[in-house]
Structure formats: C-alpha cells, structure tokens
Design a protein around this nucleic acid. Structure first.
Lengths: 237, 237
DNA sequence: TCGTTATTTTTGTGATCACAATAAAAGCAA
DNA sequence: TTGCTTTTATTGTGATCACAAAAATAACGA
C-alpha cells in the first residue's frame, strides 16, 4: 500500500506527432508489462505526473485507460494499483490465453500468405539468436511480436485487444517466463506452428500454440514453484 | 460523419455515491449497448456534456474508457464514433463469443452450486415470461444476465471483462437479435445448459452455450439477411 | 507503550481556461 | 453551378484551480 519503492521508467523520446496522453499511456503500459511497477504498489496521479514531467491530466487519462484494459485496478477508495497475482488467477489467465489464442490462430490461418510466414520465420530466428546470446530482456517482447504477427493476419481480427489485455495482466510474469525459456523450450513450438501453417493444418496449429503458451509458463510447473514466484512479485504490499 | 441525428439517452438517476464520470460512463455504455447511438455517428465531448448536463471533463474520461473497451473508435483525426459493422467483423465477433464464452462456462462449471443454479432458473423463467408478453426490450439484457451469472460463478474469473467487450461491440445487433429470439429459439438452449450443469457435463454445457449464441444471431442466417441488418444500422454515415 | 482522537497533508474529482489543430462556412473565380 | 482559397467556428488536448474525501501524521490519554 505504501509507495516507498521508486518506479523506474524507460523514458522513450516523445514524438511530436504523438499526444502526451498517448506517450504517458505507452510508458506506463510498458512499465506494467515488463514488471517495472510491482503488484500492490499504490500509484498516484500527481506522483506519476511529476516523475514523467507532465501535468496530471494526461496521467489521469492514461491510468483510466489502463484500468479499462484490466492492467490496473481501481480500488474502492479510488486508489489505483497494479493488481496482485494469485495462483488461481494465474491459472485462469493461462487457460484463457490458450483458449483465446488458439482460436485466434485458427481464424488467422486462412489469411497467412508467404510473406507473413517469412516474417514469422524471421522473428523466430531473431528469438533464437537473442536467446543464444543470453539476452533475456527482449525475448518476451519478441515472443509477443510472433504471436501478434500470427493473429493479425486475419484482417477482421477482433480478439487481439482481448489477448493483449491478458498479456498485460500476466505482465510481470512474462519476464520471468522468458528468463526460463531456454530451459523449458526443448521443443521449439514456434517451428511446429509454422509447419502446421504450411500444411494448413488448423488442429496442429492450435496444438502448437497451446503448447507454446503452456511451456512458456512451466517455470511454474508445480504449485510450490508458482507460489514462490508470486510471493516474489507481490512482496511490496 | 455529420451529427444531425439526435441522441436519446435513458437518463438514470444519479446516485450521490457514484462519481459523475461513472454515471456518464454507464449512461453512454447503455446507449451503445442498446443501439441508441448509431454506428458512424460522430460524438463530440462538448455536445455530450451539454446533453448530459455535466462538464466536458467526465465525458472525456468516459469516452476514453469506452474506447479502451472497443465500444467506441477513436479515428485518426481524434474524433470518436461508434464503429461501423461489416459482415466479416460480425462473423468474427460471433465466433469469438462462442470460443470465449464456452471456455468461460467450462471454467465456471465446477463452482456452480445449488443456489446459483436456482438463480439461473429464475432468470430463464423471467426471460420466457417477458418473451411471452411480447416485450422484447429487456430480453437482451436478461439474456446477458443469464450468461454473466453463469460465468461469474468462477471466483477467479478473468474472461468476463473480455466477454463484455464483445457484447458491447455487438451491441446494436443484440437488440435485433432479441426481437427475433422467439422465432429462432424453438429449442431452449438455456434449459439444455442447465441440464448439462446438473449432470456436470462440461462438453454438453459448452455445446449448449455455443448453440445459444449461434441461434441468438440466426436472424442473420444468410449473408443477404445479415447485410440488410448491417445496412440498417450503418445508415447514418 | 499503546490505542484513540484531532489535525494536517495529500489525493481524486470536476470545472474552467488557453491554445493549436481540424472541420465547416464563406468568399471568390471560372 | 462548380472548384478552389480564405476565413470563421468548433474541437480535442493539456494546464491550472477549487473542493471534498481520504490518508498520514500529530497529539493526547490510558
């Protein structure tokens, strides 16, 4: 509940064509997504405004938008915080990801052409390289880009915003997941997915996506391990 | 793009315990959900503020929140409007509903106790009565309540906000759907769902939910019929 | 020392204003 | 009338301020 722990933002350059509110939004979004703001941390408008060198107004709007996406939680006392994780909620989020993303993949399959498949291969290669180099930071972002590229092949896509909301809620844990990817992903599910795409095999594609998601989180394979990570993230209450 | 068509809101009493922003939000949300604002209609902050007798500030926040839920669309020129529907998008929304809601139902099943089942039965009975009376207005809201009651049995539920986002996007069409319910729903899928719950049969429950959703929209069973309804809704551009 | 009350500070909310960008209207030439 | 330019009006954005509610702190009594 206190706010002793300082927040470190990766402050991007603010493009002139982008409104301040949008800039604040994406800054805060990244902070949540990559675990720079710890669950339970109380956020105040004025504090963030001061930290980001803007007036309180854009911060207000950005916070409300993130709350609407379930990235932040507005408590009864109108305080805003990053929601705490529980083992059960974590499980629900993973199950929801598997259900929705496999559906999104299936609906995208008919629209994936040569060019997009090539893009997917490039992203996957980049992930492998980055992982080899032991650089775990960008892996989680690249992994998201792989999935996003896949689903957005469908030009009438409606589930991507919902999926991104789930990613956002799992945010802090994605970071942990990517650090453990090299151990868990003996089988490259991305390759499996791309093979399924080439064969136009919807079932195989869904299976590959589900496996990829499940194995991405099997650093929490036992309830004990999971609880350890949750405690680690929720420490700041 | 013009704004000649007036907007009629059902103005609820504003409880003192609720902030103005929240009141504006739910007013606008209802207007979108029940098709009181037609797709393509341009919305301006000041116009709505005047209409609702509040300052522009709460309207700004409510609009941004609704946009984050994909109920409204912020165009490049920063204008806000209700998104237009297309046949393909409509189809994607229905498919998404079936995938996500059947998943939510499955995850809720273990948590449904006697009391909740009774509540479901009561809502279903109310739907039947209302339909008999030929009163199509509240049917769509009651139908939503049935689904919401079902999914929210799961105390760790994370998909309900996503589902509500889909409902919101289908909003104007739900109204049409409820008007055609009596014709299409020869088989009461709600009863099927409740029987599946009693038997703890997850597969049967998912099937019932999927059928319920599909049949709820089979007023658009042929592409021609669907296009007619879409044109009817998008007329105001 | 600890629990309770009173005071001070901080916070979210909502209103108002200034400004630049956009859209609408008017003016004008063909 | 039609197409283009200029002018005017409207709009979203962002800053600042007032206020009531809530939280943090101080004061006080056991």
């Amino acid at each position: 509940m206190d706010k002793n722990s300082p927040i470190e933002f990766t402050l991007a350059e603010r493009d002139a064509s982008v409104t301040i509110t949008q800039w604040v939004y994406s800054t805060l979004r990244n902070a949540v997504m990559y675990g720079q703001i710890l669950p339970g941390r109380a956020l105040t408008i004025r504090e963030l405004a001061k930290e980001l060198n803007v007036s309180p107004m854009p911060v207000r709007e950005a916070l409300r938008q993130l709350a609407a996406e379930n990235a932040l939680e507005i408590k009864g006392n109108r305080r805003v915080m990053v929601p705490n994780m529980t083992a059960m909620k974590f499980n629900e989020l993973c199950q929801a990801r598997m259900a929705i993303e496999s559906h999104a993949a299936e609906r995208a399959l008919p629209y994936i052409d040569e060019a997009r498949l090539k893009t997917l291969q490039q992203i996957d290669a980049l992930i492998d390289d980055t992982q080899m180099a032991g650089d775990h930071g960008p892996v989680s972002a690249l992994n998201q880009e792989f999935h996003r590229t896949l689903y957005s092949a469908n030009p009438h896509q409606v589930t991507l915003p919902l999926i991104e909301s789930l990613w956002l809620q799992l945010g802090p844990f994605m970071k942990l997941a990517s650090a453990h990817l090299e151990v868990s992903n003996q089988v490259d599910r991305h390759t499996e997915a791309m093979e399924a795409i080439e064969k136009r095999d919807a079932i195989a594609l869904q299976l590959a996506i589900k496996s990829d998601i499940r194995e991405g989180f099997n650093f929490a394979s036992t309830p004990e391990l999971l609880q350890r990570f949750i405690d680690e993230s929720n420490r700041h209450n």
